[in-house]
Design a protein around this nucleic acid. Structure first.
Lengths: 247, 247
DNA sequence: TGACCGGCATGATCACGATCAAGGAGGAGT
DNA sequence: ACTCCTCCTTGATCGTGATCATGCCGGTCA
Protein backbone atom coordinates (compact mmCIF):
# COMPACT_ATOMS: atom_id res chain seq x y z
CA UNK A 1 0.00 0.00 0.00
CA UNK A 2 2.50 2.61 1.05
CA UNK A 3 4.55 1.49 -1.92
CA UNK A 4 1.76 2.21 -4.31
CA UNK A 5 1.31 5.58 -2.79
CA UNK A 6 4.95 6.39 -3.17
CA UNK A 7 4.87 5.19 -6.71
CA UNK A 8 1.90 7.36 -7.51
CA UNK A 9 3.34 10.41 -5.89
CA UNK A 10 6.54 9.88 -7.74
CA UNK A 11 4.93 9.78 -11.11
CA UNK A 12 3.07 12.94 -10.28
CA UNK A 13 6.35 14.71 -9.86
CA UNK A 14 8.51 13.26 -12.55
CA UNK A 15 8.83 9.89 -14.14
CA UNK A 16 11.78 8.25 -12.46
CA UNK A 17 11.19 4.60 -13.08
CA UNK A 18 14.22 2.83 -14.42
CA UNK A 19 12.15 0.73 -16.78
CA UNK A 20 11.07 3.72 -18.77
CA UNK A 21 14.36 5.58 -18.45
CA UNK A 22 16.19 5.90 -21.72
CA UNK A 23 19.47 5.40 -19.90
CA UNK A 24 18.63 2.04 -18.39
CA UNK A 25 20.89 0.25 -20.85
CA UNK A 26 23.89 2.25 -19.60
CA UNK A 27 23.03 2.78 -15.98
CA UNK A 28 23.47 0.67 -12.86
CA UNK A 29 20.41 -1.59 -13.27
CA UNK A 30 21.44 -2.51 -16.78
CA UNK A 31 21.66 -6.22 -16.09
CA UNK A 32 18.54 -6.57 -13.97
CA UNK A 33 15.40 -8.51 -14.77
CA UNK A 34 12.10 -6.66 -14.72
CA UNK A 35 11.08 -7.76 -11.25
CA UNK A 36 14.52 -7.00 -9.85
CA UNK A 37 14.44 -3.59 -11.40
CA UNK A 38 11.30 -2.87 -9.44
CA UNK A 39 13.16 -3.56 -6.23
CA UNK A 40 15.94 -1.30 -7.32
CA UNK A 41 13.47 1.35 -8.36
CA UNK A 42 11.99 1.30 -4.91
CA UNK A 43 15.13 2.52 -3.18
CA UNK A 44 15.77 5.41 -5.52
CA UNK A 45 15.00 8.85 -4.21
CA UNK A 46 13.61 11.73 -6.10
CA UNK A 47 15.57 14.95 -6.29
CA UNK A 48 14.47 18.33 -7.55
CA UNK A 49 16.47 19.30 -10.64
CA UNK A 50 19.62 21.24 -9.91
CA UNK A 51 20.06 24.55 -11.63
CA UNK A 52 23.35 25.59 -13.13
CA UNK A 53 25.87 26.28 -10.42
CA UNK A 54 23.96 24.52 -7.65
CA UNK A 55 25.84 21.94 -5.66
CA UNK A 56 24.76 18.33 -5.28
CA UNK A 57 26.92 17.84 -2.21
CA UNK A 58 29.90 19.49 -0.61
CA UNK A 59 33.35 18.22 0.09
CA UNK A 60 33.66 16.53 3.51
CA UNK A 61 29.93 16.30 4.07
CA UNK A 62 28.85 12.83 5.25
CA UNK A 63 28.55 10.21 2.57
CA UNK A 64 25.04 8.82 2.36
CA UNK A 65 24.21 8.17 -1.26
CA UNK A 66 25.56 7.74 -4.69
CA UNK A 67 23.84 9.55 -7.53
CA UNK A 68 23.12 8.53 -11.08
CA UNK A 69 23.02 11.39 -13.54
CA UNK A 70 19.75 11.41 -15.41
CA UNK A 71 20.18 14.53 -17.53
CA UNK A 72 22.56 17.45 -17.63
CA UNK A 73 26.14 17.36 -16.35
CA UNK A 74 28.24 18.04 -13.28
CA UNK A 75 31.80 18.64 -12.24
CA UNK A 76 33.63 17.41 -9.17
CA UNK A 77 36.05 19.80 -7.53
CA UNK A 78 38.47 19.00 -4.72
CA UNK A 79 40.08 21.66 -2.57
CA UNK A 80 43.08 20.40 -0.70
CA UNK A 81 44.61 22.25 2.18
CA UNK A 82 46.18 25.45 1.05
CA UNK A 83 46.28 24.78 -2.66
CA UNK A 84 43.80 25.80 -5.26
CA UNK A 85 40.97 23.66 -6.57
CA UNK A 86 41.42 20.61 -8.70
CA UNK A 87 38.64 19.58 -11.04
CA UNK A 88 38.76 15.80 -10.97
CA UNK A 89 35.83 14.74 -13.08
CA UNK A 90 32.97 15.65 -15.35
CA UNK A 91 29.84 13.52 -15.08
CA UNK A 92 27.40 12.85 -17.91
CA UNK A 93 24.03 11.05 -17.93
CA UNK A 94 24.10 7.43 -16.69
CA UNK A 95 27.33 7.99 -14.79
CA UNK A 96 27.61 7.35 -11.07
CA UNK A 97 28.67 10.18 -8.77
CA UNK A 98 30.03 9.81 -5.27
CA UNK A 99 31.61 6.36 -5.29
CA UNK A 100 34.88 7.79 -4.00
CA UNK A 101 33.14 8.75 -0.77
CA UNK A 102 32.48 5.23 0.47
CA UNK A 103 35.81 4.60 2.12
CA UNK A 104 36.02 7.61 4.39
CA UNK A 105 32.26 8.02 4.73
CA UNK A 106 32.45 11.55 3.41
CA UNK A 107 32.59 13.02 -0.05
CA UNK A 108 36.12 13.90 -1.14
CA UNK A 109 34.97 16.72 -3.40
CA UNK A 110 32.19 19.16 -4.07
CA UNK A 111 29.94 18.31 -7.00
CA UNK A 112 28.32 21.16 -8.89
CA UNK A 113 25.82 21.21 -11.77
CA UNK A 114 27.15 22.71 -14.99
CA UNK A 115 23.65 23.18 -16.37
CA UNK A 116 20.15 22.19 -15.33
CA UNK A 117 20.65 18.66 -14.13
CA UNK A 118 18.56 15.86 -12.70
CA UNK A 119 19.95 12.96 -10.71
CA UNK A 120 18.62 9.81 -9.10
CA UNK A 121 19.70 9.52 -5.50
CA UNK A 122 20.55 6.00 -4.38
CA UNK A 123 21.08 5.67 -0.61
CA UNK A 124 24.19 3.59 -0.30
CA UNK A 125 23.20 1.42 2.64
CA UNK A 126 20.11 0.30 0.79
CA UNK A 127 22.06 -0.21 -2.40
CA UNK A 128 24.54 -2.30 -0.47
CA UNK A 129 21.92 -4.54 1.10
CA UNK A 130 20.10 -4.89 -2.19
CA UNK A 131 23.38 -5.90 -3.81
CA UNK A 132 23.37 -8.85 -1.42
CA UNK A 133 20.34 -10.42 -3.01
CA UNK A 134 20.91 -9.21 -6.57
CA UNK A 135 24.22 -10.54 -7.86
CA UNK A 136 23.84 -8.70 -11.16
CA UNK A 137 23.52 -5.43 -9.31
CA UNK A 138 26.59 -6.21 -7.25
CA UNK A 139 28.56 -7.08 -10.34
CA UNK A 140 27.49 -3.87 -11.98
CA UNK A 141 28.57 -1.87 -8.98
CA UNK A 142 31.98 -3.53 -8.94
CA UNK A 143 32.27 -2.87 -12.62
CA UNK A 144 31.35 0.78 -12.32
CA UNK A 145 34.02 1.33 -9.73
CA UNK A 146 36.53 -0.68 -11.68
CA UNK A 147 35.82 1.33 -14.81
CA UNK A 148 36.36 4.53 -12.93
CA UNK A 149 39.71 3.20 -11.73
CA UNK A 150 40.66 2.44 -15.29
CA UNK A 151 39.62 5.88 -16.47
CA UNK A 152 41.64 7.45 -13.68
CA UNK A 153 44.75 5.60 -14.80
CA UNK A 154 44.20 6.88 -18.31
CA UNK A 155 43.89 10.38 -16.92
CA UNK A 156 47.16 10.00 -15.06
CA UNK A 157 48.84 9.02 -18.26
CA UNK A 158 47.37 12.07 -19.95
CA UNK A 159 48.57 14.35 -17.19
CA UNK A 160 52.05 12.97 -16.92
CA UNK A 161 52.98 12.19 -20.51
CA UNK A 162 50.87 14.18 -22.94
CA UNK A 163 51.49 17.60 -24.40
CA UNK A 164 48.88 20.33 -24.26
CA UNK A 165 47.78 19.53 -27.82
CA UNK A 166 47.39 15.86 -27.05
CA UNK A 167 45.42 16.63 -23.91
CA UNK A 168 42.93 18.82 -25.70
CA UNK A 169 42.60 16.37 -28.55
CA UNK A 170 42.04 13.50 -26.11
CA UNK A 171 39.48 15.54 -24.25
CA UNK A 172 37.43 16.28 -27.33
CA UNK A 173 37.74 12.79 -28.73
CA UNK A 174 36.68 11.45 -25.34
CA UNK A 175 33.67 13.72 -25.14
CA UNK A 176 32.71 12.77 -28.66
CA UNK A 177 32.84 9.12 -27.74
CA UNK A 178 30.80 9.61 -24.60
CA UNK A 179 28.12 11.46 -26.54
CA UNK A 180 28.07 8.77 -29.18
CA UNK A 181 27.51 6.06 -26.58
CA UNK A 182 24.58 8.03 -25.22
CA UNK A 183 22.96 8.29 -28.60
CA UNK A 184 23.89 11.89 -29.30
CA UNK A 185 25.84 13.16 -32.22
CA UNK A 186 29.55 12.57 -31.74
CA UNK A 187 30.28 15.49 -34.08
CA UNK A 188 28.18 18.35 -32.79
CA UNK A 189 27.64 19.19 -29.18
CA UNK A 190 27.60 21.97 -26.71
CA UNK A 191 30.18 22.18 -23.95
CA UNK A 192 28.57 22.65 -20.58
CA UNK A 193 31.87 23.61 -18.98
CA UNK A 194 33.93 26.76 -19.31
CA UNK A 195 37.44 27.00 -20.75
CA UNK A 196 38.65 27.49 -17.21
CA UNK A 197 37.06 24.18 -16.19
CA UNK A 198 38.65 22.40 -19.10
CA UNK A 199 42.02 23.89 -18.30
CA UNK A 200 41.75 22.99 -14.64
CA UNK A 201 40.75 19.44 -15.50
CA UNK A 202 43.54 18.96 -18.03
CA UNK A 203 46.22 20.70 -16.01
CA UNK A 204 46.54 23.63 -18.43
CA UNK A 205 46.17 27.38 -18.18
CA UNK A 206 43.02 28.87 -19.68
CA UNK A 207 45.11 30.78 -22.19
CA UNK A 208 46.66 27.56 -23.42
CA UNK A 209 43.24 25.99 -23.90
CA UNK A 210 42.12 29.00 -25.90
CA UNK A 211 45.21 29.11 -28.07
CA UNK A 212 45.20 25.43 -28.90
CA UNK A 213 41.50 25.45 -29.66
CA UNK A 214 42.21 28.29 -32.05
CA UNK A 215 44.96 26.31 -33.66
CA UNK A 216 42.80 23.18 -34.00
CA UNK A 217 40.24 25.39 -35.67
CA UNK A 218 42.69 26.82 -38.18
CA UNK A 219 43.91 23.30 -38.87
CA UNK A 220 40.39 22.27 -39.78
CA UNK A 221 40.08 19.72 -36.97
CA UNK A 222 37.16 21.37 -35.23
CA UNK A 223 34.88 24.37 -35.58
CA UNK A 224 34.36 26.06 -32.26
CA UNK A 225 32.16 28.99 -31.53
CA UNK A 226 31.87 29.76 -27.86
CA UNK A 227 30.69 26.52 -26.34
CA UNK A 228 29.31 25.11 -29.54
CA UNK A 229 31.61 22.44 -30.97
CA UNK A 230 31.67 20.73 -34.33
CA UNK A 231 34.22 18.04 -34.83
CA UNK A 232 35.29 18.17 -38.45
CA UNK A 233 37.97 15.51 -38.55
CA UNK A 234 37.62 13.05 -35.72
CA UNK A 235 40.24 10.74 -37.16
CA UNK A 236 42.88 13.44 -37.30
CA UNK A 237 41.90 14.50 -33.82
CA UNK A 238 42.37 11.03 -32.34
CA UNK A 239 45.64 10.84 -34.20
CA UNK A 240 46.84 14.02 -32.55
CA UNK A 241 45.69 12.61 -29.21
CA UNK A 242 47.80 9.49 -29.63
CA UNK A 243 50.71 10.59 -31.75
CA UNK A 244 54.00 9.01 -30.87
CA UNK A 245 56.44 11.85 -31.25
CA UNK A 246 54.67 13.69 -28.42
CA UNK A 247 55.09 17.12 -29.97
CA UNK B 1 38.16 -33.98 4.84
CA UNK B 2 39.48 -32.55 1.61
CA UNK B 3 39.51 -29.19 3.36
CA UNK B 4 41.72 -30.47 6.09
CA UNK B 5 44.04 -31.94 3.53
CA UNK B 6 44.30 -28.67 1.68
CA UNK B 7 44.89 -26.89 4.93
CA UNK B 8 47.63 -29.27 5.87
CA UNK B 9 49.34 -29.09 2.54
CA UNK B 10 49.19 -25.36 2.61
CA UNK B 11 50.87 -25.05 5.93
CA UNK B 12 53.57 -27.39 4.69
CA UNK B 13 54.38 -24.92 1.96
CA UNK B 14 53.98 -21.59 3.62
CA UNK B 15 51.72 -20.25 6.26
CA UNK B 16 49.01 -18.36 4.42
CA UNK B 17 46.23 -18.30 6.92
CA UNK B 18 44.78 -14.86 7.41
CA UNK B 19 44.39 -15.37 11.13
CA UNK B 20 48.09 -15.62 11.66
CA UNK B 21 49.01 -13.04 9.05
CA UNK B 22 50.48 -9.91 10.52
CA UNK B 23 48.67 -7.86 7.88
CA UNK B 24 45.19 -9.04 8.74
CA UNK B 25 44.35 -5.75 10.40
CA UNK B 26 45.03 -3.89 7.14
CA UNK B 27 43.98 -6.42 4.56
CA UNK B 28 40.63 -7.36 3.06
CA UNK B 29 39.37 -9.63 5.85
CA UNK B 30 39.99 -6.97 8.44
CA UNK B 31 36.39 -6.82 9.61
CA UNK B 32 35.65 -10.52 9.60
CA UNK B 33 34.84 -12.73 12.56
CA UNK B 34 37.00 -15.77 13.14
CA UNK B 35 34.61 -18.24 11.55
CA UNK B 36 34.06 -15.98 8.55
CA UNK B 37 37.77 -15.59 8.13
CA UNK B 38 38.03 -19.34 7.74
CA UNK B 39 35.64 -19.18 4.81
CA UNK B 40 37.65 -16.41 3.29
CA UNK B 41 40.86 -18.29 3.92
CA UNK B 42 39.49 -21.23 2.03
CA UNK B 43 39.24 -19.44 -1.28
CA UNK B 44 42.74 -17.99 -1.21
CA UNK B 45 45.28 -19.58 -3.48
CA UNK B 46 48.89 -20.15 -2.79
CA UNK B 47 51.47 -18.58 -5.07
CA UNK B 48 55.17 -19.23 -5.28
CA UNK B 49 57.09 -16.08 -4.35
CA UNK B 50 57.92 -13.83 -7.27
CA UNK B 51 61.51 -12.90 -7.76
CA UNK B 52 62.57 -9.40 -8.64
CA UNK B 53 61.50 -8.54 -12.15
CA UNK B 54 59.03 -11.38 -12.51
CA UNK B 55 55.56 -10.48 -13.62
CA UNK B 56 52.40 -11.30 -11.68
CA UNK B 57 50.20 -10.84 -14.72
CA UNK B 58 50.43 -9.14 -18.08
CA UNK B 59 48.43 -6.34 -19.57
CA UNK B 60 45.35 -7.56 -21.45
CA UNK B 61 45.50 -11.07 -20.07
CA UNK B 62 42.12 -12.30 -18.81
CA UNK B 63 41.10 -11.07 -15.40
CA UNK B 64 40.57 -13.92 -12.97
CA UNK B 65 41.78 -12.87 -9.59
CA UNK B 66 42.74 -10.00 -7.41
CA UNK B 67 45.91 -10.30 -5.37
CA UNK B 68 46.76 -9.15 -1.89
CA UNK B 69 50.40 -8.30 -1.38
CA UNK B 70 51.82 -10.25 1.52
CA UNK B 71 55.44 -9.16 1.41
CA UNK B 72 57.64 -7.26 -1.01
CA UNK B 73 56.40 -4.74 -3.54
CA UNK B 74 55.22 -4.42 -7.13
CA UNK B 75 54.67 -1.85 -9.82
CA UNK B 76 51.89 -1.61 -12.35
CA UNK B 77 52.82 -0.47 -15.83
CA UNK B 78 50.44 0.36 -18.65
CA UNK B 79 51.52 0.51 -22.26
CA UNK B 80 49.06 2.36 -24.42
CA UNK B 81 49.12 2.15 -28.19
CA UNK B 82 52.19 3.78 -29.59
CA UNK B 83 53.26 5.72 -26.54
CA UNK B 84 55.74 4.74 -23.91
CA UNK B 85 54.93 3.05 -20.62
CA UNK B 86 53.18 4.73 -17.78
CA UNK B 87 53.81 3.48 -14.27
CA UNK B 88 50.45 3.88 -12.57
CA UNK B 89 50.99 2.40 -9.13
CA UNK B 90 53.30 0.91 -6.57
CA UNK B 91 51.83 -1.79 -4.33
CA UNK B 92 52.95 -2.51 -0.78
CA UNK B 93 51.95 -5.31 1.63
CA UNK B 94 48.22 -5.54 2.39
CA UNK B 95 47.28 -3.67 -0.76
CA UNK B 96 44.98 -5.15 -3.38
CA UNK B 97 46.21 -5.54 -6.93
CA UNK B 98 44.07 -5.99 -10.01
CA UNK B 99 40.79 -4.32 -9.06
CA UNK B 100 40.90 -2.20 -12.19
CA UNK B 101 40.56 -5.33 -14.29
CA UNK B 102 37.04 -6.22 -13.23
CA UNK B 103 35.17 -4.06 -15.67
CA UNK B 104 36.73 -5.20 -18.92
CA UNK B 105 37.58 -8.67 -17.66
CA UNK B 106 41.23 -8.15 -18.45
CA UNK B 107 44.08 -6.51 -16.62
CA UNK B 108 44.74 -2.97 -17.83
CA UNK B 109 48.42 -3.13 -16.97
CA UNK B 110 51.34 -5.44 -16.36
CA UNK B 111 52.30 -5.95 -12.73
CA UNK B 112 55.94 -6.69 -11.94
CA UNK B 113 57.70 -7.50 -8.68
CA UNK B 114 60.27 -4.94 -7.60
CA UNK B 115 61.89 -7.40 -5.20
CA UNK B 116 61.14 -10.87 -3.89
CA UNK B 117 57.42 -10.69 -3.33
CA UNK B 118 54.66 -12.98 -2.11
CA UNK B 119 51.02 -12.47 -2.85
CA UNK B 120 47.73 -14.14 -1.94
CA UNK B 121 45.66 -14.91 -4.99
CA UNK B 122 41.93 -14.40 -4.53
CA UNK B 123 39.83 -15.71 -7.44
CA UNK B 124 37.35 -12.97 -8.10
CA UNK B 125 34.28 -15.05 -8.82
CA UNK B 126 34.66 -16.79 -5.49
CA UNK B 127 35.33 -13.51 -3.73
CA UNK B 128 32.20 -12.10 -5.31
CA UNK B 129 29.98 -14.96 -4.21
CA UNK B 130 31.48 -14.95 -0.75
CA UNK B 131 30.76 -11.24 -0.55
CA UNK B 132 27.11 -12.14 -0.92
CA UNK B 133 26.97 -13.90 2.41
CA UNK B 134 29.56 -11.80 4.23
CA UNK B 135 28.42 -8.18 4.32
CA UNK B 136 31.60 -7.09 6.10
CA UNK B 137 33.68 -8.51 3.31
CA UNK B 138 31.54 -6.75 0.73
CA UNK B 139 31.85 -3.48 2.57
CA UNK B 140 35.58 -3.89 2.75
CA UNK B 141 35.78 -4.53 -0.99
CA UNK B 142 33.74 -1.45 -1.75
CA UNK B 143 35.94 0.51 0.58
CA UNK B 144 39.15 -0.73 -0.98
CA UNK B 145 38.01 0.32 -4.40
CA UNK B 146 36.71 3.61 -3.12
CA UNK B 147 40.00 4.31 -1.42
CA UNK B 148 41.87 3.62 -4.61
CA UNK B 149 39.60 6.09 -6.38
CA UNK B 150 40.39 8.69 -3.78
CA UNK B 151 44.12 8.05 -4.06
CA UNK B 152 43.89 8.36 -7.82
CA UNK B 153 42.27 11.77 -7.51
CA UNK B 154 45.08 12.86 -5.23
CA UNK B 155 47.57 11.64 -7.80
CA UNK B 156 45.83 13.63 -10.53
CA UNK B 157 46.16 16.71 -8.41
CA UNK B 158 49.84 15.99 -7.93
CA UNK B 159 50.38 15.54 -11.64
CA UNK B 160 48.47 18.56 -12.77
CA UNK B 161 49.27 21.16 -10.11
CA UNK B 162 52.47 20.30 -8.28
CA UNK B 163 56.04 21.25 -9.11
CA UNK B 164 58.78 18.67 -9.35
CA UNK B 165 59.90 19.45 -5.80
CA UNK B 166 56.41 19.07 -4.43
CA UNK B 167 55.95 15.79 -6.27
CA UNK B 168 59.06 14.23 -4.84
CA UNK B 169 58.34 15.55 -1.38
CA UNK B 170 54.81 14.13 -1.59
CA UNK B 171 56.18 10.83 -2.81
CA UNK B 172 58.57 10.45 0.10
CA UNK B 173 56.10 11.68 2.67
CA UNK B 174 53.56 9.23 1.25
CA UNK B 175 55.97 6.31 1.37
CA UNK B 176 56.91 7.23 4.91
CA UNK B 177 53.28 7.20 5.91
CA UNK B 178 52.62 3.89 4.24
CA UNK B 179 55.56 2.33 6.03
CA UNK B 180 54.43 3.75 9.33
CA UNK B 181 50.98 2.25 8.92
CA UNK B 182 52.54 -1.11 8.28
CA UNK B 183 54.59 -0.95 11.43
CA UNK B 184 57.92 -0.13 9.82
CA UNK B 185 60.05 2.87 10.50
CA UNK B 186 58.70 5.94 8.76
CA UNK B 187 62.18 7.45 8.77
CA UNK B 188 64.44 4.77 7.38
CA UNK B 189 63.62 2.52 4.52
CA UNK B 190 64.94 1.05 1.35
CA UNK B 191 63.42 2.00 -2.00
CA UNK B 192 62.54 -1.04 -4.02
CA UNK B 193 62.10 1.02 -7.17
CA UNK B 194 64.67 2.71 -9.37
CA UNK B 195 64.95 6.44 -9.99
CA UNK B 196 63.53 5.79 -13.43
CA UNK B 197 60.45 4.17 -11.90
CA UNK B 198 59.96 7.11 -9.56
CA UNK B 199 60.32 9.55 -12.42
CA UNK B 200 57.91 7.65 -14.61
CA UNK B 201 55.37 7.47 -11.81
CA UNK B 202 55.63 11.15 -10.95
CA UNK B 203 55.78 12.41 -14.51
CA UNK B 204 59.38 13.58 -14.25
CA UNK B 205 62.61 12.84 -16.07
CA UNK B 206 65.15 10.68 -14.24
CA UNK B 207 67.59 13.56 -14.22
CA UNK B 208 65.09 15.74 -12.44
CA UNK B 209 64.53 13.10 -9.78
CA UNK B 210 68.26 12.84 -9.24
CA UNK B 211 68.81 16.56 -9.06
CA UNK B 212 66.00 17.25 -6.63
CA UNK B 213 66.99 14.35 -4.42
CA UNK B 214 70.44 15.91 -4.32
CA UNK B 215 68.96 19.23 -3.39
CA UNK B 216 66.76 17.74 -0.65
CA UNK B 217 69.89 16.12 0.69
CA UNK B 218 71.86 19.33 0.77
CA UNK B 219 68.90 21.02 2.44
CA UNK B 220 69.02 18.47 5.20
CA UNK B 221 65.56 17.07 4.46
CA UNK B 222 66.70 13.54 3.70
CA UNK B 223 69.84 11.47 3.54
CA UNK B 224 69.90 9.29 0.48
CA UNK B 225 72.51 6.77 -0.47
CA UNK B 226 71.56 4.70 -3.44
CA UNK B 227 68.23 3.22 -2.51
CA UNK B 228 68.68 3.66 1.20
CA UNK B 229 66.61 6.56 2.48
CA UNK B 230 66.64 8.36 5.81
CA UNK B 231 64.09 11.06 6.31
CA UNK B 232 65.69 13.70 8.51
CA UNK B 233 62.96 16.30 8.62
CA UNK B 234 59.55 14.87 7.86
CA UNK B 235 57.79 18.02 8.85
CA UNK B 236 59.75 20.19 6.46
CA UNK B 237 59.24 17.58 3.78
CA UNK B 238 55.47 17.58 4.13
CA UNK B 239 55.61 21.33 4.14
CA UNK B 240 57.42 21.34 0.81
CA UNK B 241 54.84 18.87 -0.48
CA UNK B 242 51.96 21.16 0.37
CA UNK B 243 53.41 24.62 0.11
CA UNK B 244 51.06 27.19 -1.23
CA UNK B 245 53.26 29.32 -3.45
CA UNK B 246 53.99 26.26 -5.59
CA UNK B 247 57.54 27.32 -6.30
C1' DT C 1 91.81 -8.17 -14.21
C1' DG C 2 89.70 -6.08 -17.62
C1' DA C 3 85.55 -5.01 -20.33
C1' DC C 4 80.88 -4.17 -20.11
C1' DC C 5 76.39 -2.55 -18.65
C1' DG C 6 72.69 -0.61 -15.88
C1' DG C 7 71.70 2.80 -12.55
C1' DC C 8 72.74 7.26 -11.04
C1' DA C 9 74.63 12.08 -10.95
C1' DT C 10 75.69 16.55 -12.95
C1' DG C 11 76.34 20.23 -16.47
C1' DA C 12 74.58 23.01 -20.60
C1' DT C 13 70.96 24.22 -23.52
C1' DC C 14 66.32 24.54 -25.13
C1' DA C 15 61.23 24.54 -25.53
C1' DC C 16 56.65 24.14 -23.87
C1' DG C 17 53.41 26.13 -21.53
C1' DA C 18 52.70 29.45 -17.41
C1' DT C 19 52.30 34.01 -16.36
C1' DC C 20 51.56 38.83 -17.09
C1' DA C 21 49.01 42.19 -19.64
C1' DA C 22 45.37 43.99 -22.65
C1' DG C 23 41.43 43.95 -25.03
C1' DG C 24 37.13 41.97 -27.24
C1' DA C 25 32.56 39.58 -27.18
C1' DG C 26 28.27 38.53 -25.22
C1' DG C 27 24.71 38.45 -21.61
C1' DA C 28 22.03 40.50 -17.67
C1' DG C 29 20.23 44.20 -15.31
C1' DT C 30 19.02 49.07 -15.13
C1' DA D 1 20.51 52.62 -24.61
C1' DC D 2 24.26 52.02 -21.22
C1' DT D 3 27.17 49.77 -17.80
C1' DC D 4 28.96 45.94 -15.61
C1' DC D 5 30.81 41.51 -15.43
C1' DT D 6 32.11 37.05 -16.89
C1' DC D 7 34.15 34.44 -20.34
C1' DC D 8 37.20 34.21 -23.88
C1' DT D 9 41.08 35.53 -27.02
C1' DT D 10 45.59 37.15 -28.30
C1' DG D 11 50.31 38.96 -27.60
C1' DA D 12 54.95 39.19 -25.08
C1' DT D 13 58.02 37.37 -21.80
C1' DC D 14 59.86 34.15 -18.60
C1' DG D 15 60.86 29.91 -15.95
C1' DT D 16 60.65 25.01 -14.94
C1' DG D 17 61.87 20.94 -16.17
C1' DA D 18 62.98 18.06 -20.58
C1' DT D 19 66.62 16.86 -23.35
C1' DC D 20 71.27 16.09 -24.77
C1' DA D 21 75.81 14.92 -23.32
C1' DT D 22 79.19 13.18 -20.35
C1' DG D 23 81.13 10.67 -16.71
C1' DC D 24 81.12 7.95 -12.42
C1' DC D 25 80.12 4.06 -9.52
C1' DG D 26 79.29 -0.82 -8.62
C1' DG D 27 78.10 -5.01 -10.11
C1' DT D 28 78.88 -9.23 -13.24
C1' DC D 29 80.97 -12.16 -16.43
C1' DA D 30 84.86 -13.67 -19.43
Amino acid sequence: MPDTLTGRRRSLLHETRCQTCSLSSLCLPLALEVQDMDQFDAIIRRRAPLKKGETLFRQDSPFTSVFAVRSGSLKQVTTEGSGEDQLTNFYLPSELVGLDGIDEARYPGTVVALETTTVCEIPFDRLDSLSESLPELRTQLYRSMSKELRDDRRMMRLLSRKTADQRLASFFAGLSDRFRRRGYSPYSFRLSMSRADIGNYLGLAVETVSRILGRFQSQGLVAVSGREVHILDLEALTQVAEEEGAK
